[in-house]
C-alpha cells in the first residue's frame, strides 16, 4: 500500500510539473531565424541552441502531453498557469460616471465615491478595467447596464448617464476623454462614442 501510494504521489508530481512547467508557457512555438540571430548575438551560440531545443521540446513533447494529461483541470477550474502581475499600464486610466453631466464617481477619488465599493470589488474590477482601457471590451454593455440601473435607482429623475474613460500620461494630472458610453432617457439605449 505504501509503495502504491508513493507511486501515485509521484505521478501527481509529474502531471503537475508537465501541465505547469514554470516559464515554458511563455515560449513561442519556434524561433525565427531573425530571433535566433539576435539571441546568438546577445548571449552566444550555446544559449541560442538551448533556446531552440527548449522550444522544440515544448512544442513537440510538453504541450501535447500537457493537453492530454491536463484534461481534469477545467472540471475544477484549476489550470496550472501562473502569470501573476507581469506589468502595469504605461498610462493612467480612470473611470468617471456622470449623471446629468455631474460627476458622481471617479476612480480613486474619495469625494466622488458613489458605487465605489461595487466598482472596486475584485470580481467587478476586471470588467471595469477592460471597459476603461479598451474600445472593444467584451463586457462594456453589461457594466453599463448595471451602472445605469443603479443611477436610475439613486436618481429617479435622471435623464442622462455617462461612463467616461479617462486616460492621461503619467503621472496622471491631465486626463483626457478616451471614449464614453452614454445612456439617455426615455429608452436608456447605450451609445459608445470616442
Amino acid at each position: 500500500m505504501t509503495h502504491l501510494r508513493a507511486g501515485l504521489i509521484l505521478a501527481v508530481y509529474a502531471v503537475l510539473l508537465v501541465v505547469g512547467t514554470p516559464g515554458l508557457d511563455h515560449l513561442g512555438w519556434r524561433l525565427s531565424s531573425r530571433e535566433e540571430a539576435r539571441l546568438e548575438k546577445r548571449f552566444g551560440p550555446t544559449v541560442a541552441r538551448v533556446g531552440k531545443r527548449l522550444m522544440a521540446f515544448n512544442k513537440e513533447f510538453r504541450r501535447p502531453v500537457a493537453n492530454r494529461v491536463g484534461k481534469f483541470q477545467p472540471v475544477f477550474r484549476i489550470r496550472q498557469a501562473w502569470n501573476l502581475y507581469r506589468d502595469g499600464p504605461r498610462q493612467i486610466y480612470r473611470l468617471e460616471v456622470r449623471v446629468d453631466g455631474e460627476p458622481v464617481y471617479r476612480t480613486e477619488d474619495p469625494e466622488l465615491d458613489w458605487l465605489a465599493p461595487q466598482l472596486r470589488n475584485r470580481r467587478m474590477r476586471p470588467v471595469v478595467e477592460s471597459t476603461v482601457r479598451k474600445w472593444k471590451s467584451g463586457n462594456w454593455r453589461g457594466l453599463s447596464r448595471f451602472v445605469v440601473a443603479q443611477a436610475r435607482q439613486t436618481w429617479p429623475q435622471a435623464e442622462r448617464v455617462e461612463l467616461v474613460s479617462l486616460r492621461s500620461k503619467r503621472p496622471g494630472n491631465r486626463p483626457q476623454v478616451q471614449h464614453r458610453i452614454i445612456a439617455t432617457a426615455p429608452d436608456w439605449g447605450l451609445e459608445k462614442t470616442r
Binding site: L16, P22, G23, D25, H26, A81, N83, R86, D87
Partner: peptide, 12 residues
C-alpha cells in the same frame, strides 16, 4: 511552481 512561474513570466 506558482512563485517560480510568476517570476519567470515577469522576466520573459
Amino acid at each position: 511552481m506558482i512563485y517560480l512561474s510568476a517570476g519567470l513570466a515577469k522576466l520573459i
